[in-house]
Write a protein that binds this DNA or RNA. Structure first.
Length: 359
DNA sequence: ATGCGAATAT
DNA sequence: AATATTCGCA
C-alpha cells in the first residue's frame, strides 16, 4: 500500500520534472533550430529527447531514449515542425565514369555529396560564425554518427566560448579520426538539409568541396601514378581518384593549391633566408624540398609530410609502377623549378605543349 | 567544344 | 587559408 502510494508520488514528481525538462528542451531546440544546418545532429538529438520524455509522461516508460541512430524516431509528428527540416540528402550516385581496373582497397563507398545549400537563412548567421565554417560537414560516410556528434558538440562549445577560448581550433574538415574507411557497416545516409532550388536561382555558389585526408590521400596517389604534380592534369587525377561526384574543377583547384604550396614553402616569411635555390629531390616519385628529405630516404617521406603538412607526399600502399623511371627522368629535372623539355618520352599530348610553352 | 593553368573572387 | 569561379589560351 504504502509502496504503492510512494510510487504514485514518485510518478507525479517524475512527470512534473519531465514536463519542465521538455519545456526547457523545446526552448533550446528553438535556439538550435537557427543553426539547424550546422547542428543537425543536435537538433535531432534534442528532438528525440523531447519525444522520449513525452512518451514517458504519457505512460510508457521507454528506456532506450535514443534507440535508433538514424532519424527513425521522428515518425510521430507530435514533436513539432522541426522535423520537417530534416530533408534527406539525395545520394545522386551518378556513376559518371567507372571504368578502369582498381587496385584500391577501399574505394567503393566514397560517396560524399554535398549539394547546394545557401539560402536566406544563411544570412541569419553572423559573420564570425561563417568564418568558422561550421556548416561544412564533409564525409558523413566516414565518420559515424557518434563522432560527428562529438565534433558537433565541440563546435557548440567553441561557439559558446566565443570560438577562441584558448582551445585549438578545429580544422574545417574533419573526418574519422581513426582513418577507417570503407566499412560500409553503418549504412550512413546523411540527412543534410539541402535546398533543392528547382530551376530558380542559378548563381548559387557550389558547395565547397572539403578535401578530407582520405580525399587528399587519393589525390596524392593519383599524383604519384601520374608522375608528380607538374605533369598530372586535373582530369587524369580525377579519373584515377575515382571519387563519385568529384569534378575536374575541384581537382584543378586543389592541384593549383598543391602546386603553390609545393614549391618554395618559404616566401610567406619575408625574413627567412630563403636559399633562393631550393634543392629538390625525388622521394617516392615526388619532388620534395631537399631539406625535408635530408634524413634517411625511408622516412623522408614521412618527415616531409609532417613538415609540410598535408602538402607533403604521403606514403602510399600503391607501388609505383613502371612509369616510375619515366617519372624521374622525364620530369622537370632540376632545382630552380626549371622544367626540362623531353618531348620524346611523354605520350601525353598535353605535357608536350605544356613544356613547349615553358621552354 | 575541352581542358588547362593563372588570376581572381568569396 | 582553402576553395570556387573566371579568363585567356591552345
Amino acid at each position: 500500500m504504502i509502496k504503492n502510494l510512494s510510487n504514485m508520488k514518485n510518478y507525479n514528481q517524475k512527470r512534473e520534472r519531465c514536463s519542465e525538462y521538455i519545456e526547457a528542451l523545446e526552448e533550446e531546440r528553438r535556439k538550435i533550430n537557427v543553426f539547424q544546418r550546422e547542428l543537425p545532429l543536435c537538433l535531432e538529438l534534442v528532438t528525440q529527447a523531447i519525444e522520449a520524455y513525452k512518451k514517458e509522461i504519457s505512460g510508457t516508460t521507454t528506456e532506450n531514449l535514443y534507440g535508433q541512430s538514424e532519424c527513425s524516431e521522428q515518425t510521430t509528428g507530435e514533436c513539432g515542425p522541426v522535423l520537417d527540416l530534416f530533408i534527406p540528402i539525395k545520394h545522386s550516385s551518378t556513376s559518371t565514369e567507372e571504368e578502369e581496373e582498381e587496385v584500391d582497397e577501399d574505394d567503393d563507398d566514397e560517396h560524399e555529396f554535398h549539394e547546394d545549400i545557401d539560402f536566406n537563412d544563411k544570412n541569419m548567421k553572423s559573420e564570425w560564425l561563417k568564418s568558422v565554417q561550421l556548416w561544412n560537414q564533409p564525409d558523413a560516410v566516414l565518420s559515424n554518427k557518434l563522432e560527428r556528434l562529438e565534433k558537433e558538440t565541440e563546435t557548440i562549445v567553441e561557439v559558446i566560448k566565443g570560438k577562441d577560448g584558448g582551445v585549438s581550433q578545429q580544422p574545417p574538415c574533419y573526418e574519422t579520426s581513426n582513418g577507417k574507411y570503407g566499412e560500409g557497416s553503418d549504412g550512413e545516409k546523411k540527412d543534410q538539409p539541402q535546398k533543392d532550388d528547382g530551376g530558380g536561382g542559378r548563381g548559387q555558389r557550389k558547395q565547397r568541396r572539403c578535401w578530407s585526408q582520405e580525399l587528399h590521400r587519393r589525390f596524392l596517389n593519383a599524383l604519384k601514378q601520374l608522375g608528380g604534380p607538374h605533369v598530372a592534369t586535373p582530369k587524369q587525377i580525377r579519373e584515377l581518384m575515382k571519387i563519385d561526384g568529384l569534378t575536374n574543377d575541384e581537382v584543378k583547384s586543389h592541384l593549383q593549391k598543391y602546386r603553390l604550396h609545393t614549391r618554395r614553402p618559404s616566401q610567406t616569411t619575408p625574413n627567412n633566408r630563403n636559399s633562393q635555390t631550393q634543392h629538390f629531390v625525388v622521394v617516392g616519385g615526388l619532388w620534395v624540398p631537399q631539406a625535408a628529405a635530408n634524413h634517411s630516404t625511408a622516412n623522408a617521406v614521412v618527415s616531409a609530410e609532417t613538415t609540410t603538412g598535408i602538402y607533403g607526399p604521403m606514403v602510399s600502399p600503391l607501388p609505383c609502377h613502371s612509369n616510375f623511371d619515366r617519372t624521374i627522368s622525364d620530369k622537370k629535372s632540376n632545382k630552380g623549378m626549371v622544367r626540362c623539355t623531353s618531348p620524346a618520352m611523354s605520350s601525353s599530348t598535353r605535357a608536350n605543349t605544356k613544356y613547349a610553352k615553358i621552354s
